[in-house]
Amino acid sequence: MNNSLKKYRFFWPVVFLAPFVICFFLFNLYPILYSFYMSTLDWAGYNQKVYVGFKNFISIFTKDKLFWKSVLNTLKIGLSGFPIALVLGLIFAALLANTKRFKNALQTMNFLPYITTPVAIGMIFTFIFEQHIGIFNKLIVAMGGKAINFIGSAKYAPFVIAFMIIWRNTGYFMTMYLAGITSISEDLYEAAKIDGASNLQCFFRITIPLLRPVTTFLTITSLIYMFQMFDEANLLFTNQTSSTVGGPSQSCLTIVWNFYNQAFGSNPRMGYASAMACVLFVIIAIVSVIGLRLMNGKED
């Protein structure tokens, strides 16, 4: 008996957990740790490695205006995109929850953007917002307005990306919220109705508080995603022949795009880019820890 118990306490747990742990260490954690090591080097990836200590970090924090610009850009794009997508998703879910007809069709339609390839999204959004040929601008001109150079101006371009984020994620957020709402007991709403609560009161006093776990989950995953944003920004500008890194006056250069360009661009600085990755890692770690606290907090 003792032997068989041991089997369930040691042998089988190890067998079942080992693949996950090993793969995580090999392909996810080790590369990050290696990047930490590389952040102390001056290295282009092929030539002699030169150890420079903390010099890369010192440059990032004291000299590198572009890095901080990219941080600000990322925050600007992400914070003007994700909160709107969250709110829209929530409203949408609440409305859809008491819709009977076409519920599934509406839900599926709105989920489609989430499964579309980012490359396609980038192209289509270029076609929609381009100054001369863009459909949106044609519409503006047709209504008597003046065409706006959305993609070519530092003022508007970040918001085009924010709009891409809203477009892509609203349906996904809605789906998450909708399932959350479905799991709220009907009795709560009926009791509230008997006490004379209006629909709006129900929404603010019952639905929103009870959806907090979903909101927390979505907020944390969005924040982590936001700091790693690359595809949307990069793809909006890839198809233009005169493409510059970061879009018009680098207003769309996100942290990861900047990092990617330093590491794999025409003048690779892998050590320096690794140092950027480390700074980003610390930022994400802080956000995650706070997030985890919030997630665990609700269980107590």
């Binding site: 080790y30 740790l33 944390i220 990861v256 770690a285």
Partner: peptide
Amino acid sequence: TMMVPTQIGIIGYMIE
């Protein structure tokens, strides 16, 4: 592991 931003380890991953 859920929180680890894998994408930013891409340089180390490439070298590996």
